[in-house]
């Protein structure tokens, strides 16, 4: 066991005031450097000896990265705190599932430190924010030595703890397009205790035509090495008339996405349990999103 009272490894600390400086620093240090935002993952990994960066580039003083903008879509800068997203009225109204995921992401103190983009970059299969971002067709904006590139977030995750980010690249923001009017969404998770990481989680966003599903997106977390969309479940709903049986069937299809894990990890659940949990979770999330979509319809 390592001593978690101190941070034993030595590193140089930079606090650039502009994105250009940060990009230049990461280009200079490459794999010896790490971007620091909230630190709730990186510092734990450094204490446990899993990583030992020689340079930390703290991006929290870069003005454009601490901003969140809710006009014409949602723009979440890399240093925007989980708690800011959770408390934003724009997010709660337009991107309800994201507000819920942010609120359930962990203890309050961690949410006051951690960032949504950091949660995405850590790329834990059980992370709470990715499914909630993916149901809104999120894009990842990435800055690197050769310029900026924009990638759909569903192409961002490679496998557990691995993203498409190059060693010198920085995720600068996540952008969500303006949601369709009347869209309803929900995020739910199952965990051992409230503060724990998800055993499984699910996000749903859907549009209604009176009693019919016009479109639906369902994304599951902690069922495979990356968050995944359940297209069979989505397609089973689209164009169909609302019924309890229909939703039951869709949630069964979603539960089939659960992949057997090669390493049964101590303290985590079995694939069989996850299947059952996903089924109930997706069912509840569809009903919730459906009710919310209808609430919006009534308001118009």
């Amino acid at each position: 066991m390592s001593n978690t009272r101190i941070l034993a490894c030595e590193f140089e600390y930079f606090q650039p005031g502009s994105l250009k400086e940060a990009v230049d620093l990461m280009a200079e240090y490459g794999n010896r450097g790490k971007v620091l935002a909230g630190g709730t993952d990186i510092l734990v990994n450094m204490k446990n000896g899993r990583i030992a960066p020689e340079v930390l580039v703290d991006i929290r003083q870069i003005p454009e990265l601490v901003r969140m903008n809710g006009k014409d879509g949602l723009n979440i800068g890399a240093a925007v705190l989980v708690r800011s997203v959770e408390r934003s009225t724009t997010v709660a109204q337009k991107y309800t599932a994201l507000a819920e995921a942010a609120g359930l992401l962990g203890p309050l103190q961690n949410r006051n430190m951690a960032t949504i983009c950091g949660n995405v970059c850590t790329a834990s299969p059980s992370a709470d924010s990715p499914p909630a971002l993916l149901v809104f067709n999120a894009e990842a904006w990435i800055a690197g030595p050769s310029g900026e590139r924009v990638v759909p977030l569903d192409q961002f995750f490679v496998r557990s703890k691995k993203t498409i980010l190059d060693q010198a690249e920085i995720l600068t923001r996540i952008v969500l397009p303006e949601p369709a009017p009347g869209l309803g969404s929900a995020f739910m998770k199952v965990a051992r205790v409230a503060a724990d990481i998800s055993t499984v989680n699910a996000a749903v966003a859907l549009e209604r035509d009176n009693d019919y599903f016009r479109s639906c997106r369902i994304v599951l977390g902690s069922v495979a090495t990356t968050p995944i969309r359940s297209k069979p479940a989505e397609e089973s709903l689209e164009g169909q008339q609302y019924s309890v049986d229909l939703i039951e069937h869709a949630s069964t299809l979603a539960s089939m996405e659960v992949q057997p894990s090669k390493r049964a990890r101590l303290g985590r659940s079995t694939p069989e349990y996850r299947k059952g949990a996903i089924k109930s979770l997706v069912k509840d999330a569809i009903h919730k999103a459906w009710d919310r979509a209808s609430e919006k319809e009534r308001k118009q």
Binding site: Q15, L36, G39, L56, D58, Q109, N110, M113
Partner: peptide, 13 residues
């Protein structure tokens, strides 16, 4: 104004 964890906070930050 915000409660945070001092064990995961760099003093320089």
């Amino acid at each position: 104004g915000a409660p945070i964890l001092a064990c995961l906070t760099l003093a320089v930050a």
